[in-house]
């Protein structure tokens, strides 16, 4: 048994400290700020755990976009919300603390009692990866060995968007998403939104393209693209599309449709749903990745943009 490296100990302490801050600080807005920092440190933890793919996703999606979502939501909540000040009594808190410590302790025991040697599917992945023509094992798992999960996930994203839109009041239907609209943005932000997006597009496509053989892939690329779109929206350079816009809806489901289409073709050509014909695996995987990246980027952006609001909302509410 060797001791963990000091840097790992430091990271673990930092993660727990920031998590404690998110839980204990009094103002919701500050808790959301703490969550952003927490996500970034967590991304470093994932790098230490050898999962660069997860680290990229955590930094971009878990910290960046989730943080933006929570910060904007915290800023929109009423200032005199009684939920900001009321706290449960000490009795409830002690019981909760005991209960949660017990849960954490049980999980810790599980971690310490994990079977030795550790079961692993890594050899199975390594043995079959060459059949897919893809060099990054995580991409191989996501799009070949566990493709059903990824297909389900792409559909979950569409469903989340449908659910989000269905929260709109009747008079708002047909309007534009309202979360990201605000007062005129400051000039430096507008400048950034004019200069940065082309570089973001290059980085996003690059992440997709190298994702076949190196850390990266459609989710990370899509997050970067969505972030660029959101930057342009927040800076007020463009309006988000109306929820009734057909091209935008088409783009949102395009990825899932391509995925299902190729999967069905596989049932016919290669004998099983989502099986790829011999030799064509890599180009097919890349087509699915490209289509999914477009759709995921659009959906992430729309999820951040929120439900539609009536057209005059920005003017009336002040």
């Amino acid at each position: 048994m060797s001791l963990p490296a000091p840097v790992d100990l430091g990271l673990a302490a930092l993660v727990l400290g920031l998590a404690g801050w998110v839980i204990t600080t009094s103002a919701t807005y500050r808790a959301a700020e703490g969550f952003v920092a927490y996500g970034l440190v967590l991304a470093l933890v994932w790098v230490r755990l050898g999962s660069v793919d997860v680290a990229l996703t955590e930094a971009a999606l878990g910290s960046g976009l989730t943080g933006l979502l929570l910060l904007r939501a915290a800023a929109r909540l009423p200032a005199d919300d009684p939920a900001e000040t009321t706290r449960p009594g000490p009795g409830v808190r002690v019981v909760a603390a005991v209960l949660c410590t017990a849960v954490a302790g049980a999980l810790a025991a599980v971690v310490l009692l994990l079977p030795e040697p550790a079961p692993s599917l890594a050899p199975a992945v390594a043995a079959n990866l060459s059949a897919t023509g893809v060099g990054n094992p995580v991409t191989g798992v996501l799009l070949a060995f566990r493709a059903v999960d990824t297909l389900g996930e792409s559909i979950v994203l569409v469903l989340a968007l449908v659910g989000l839109w269905s929260l709109a009041p009747d008079d708002a239907w047909g309007g534009r998403p309202g979360f990201l609209r605000g007062p005129a943005a400051a000039s430096p932000l507008r400048f950034l939104a004019q200069v940065l997006p082309p570089f973001g597009i290059l980085v996003g496509i690059h992440l997709l393209w190298i994702g076949a053989d190196h850390p990266g892939g459609k989710f990370q690329g899509a997050t970067v693209l969505a972030a660029m779109w959101v930057l342009v929206l927040v800076a007020g350079l463009r309006q988000p599309p109306r929820v009734t816009s057909r091209p935008m809806r088409g783009l949102a489901v395009f990825g899932s449709l391509v995925f299902v289409g190729i999967g069905t073709a596989g049932a016919w050509l290669a004998g099983a749903f989502l099986a790829y014909p011999e030799g064509l695996a890599k180009p097919l995987i890349l087509s699915i990745e490209t289509a999914l990246m477009l759709s995921v980027a659009v959906i992430l952006g729309l999820l951040l943009a929120g439900p539609p609001e009536p057209d005059d909302a920005a003017g009336v509410r002040s």
Partner: peptide, 16 residues
């Protein structure tokens, strides 16, 4: 792919 990405980036840049 590089040329395509550059073309997209240029188009975006010119619009923004």
């Amino acid at each position: 792919v590089g040329l395509l990405a550059a073309a997209l980036a240029t188009w975006t840049s010119l619009r923004l």
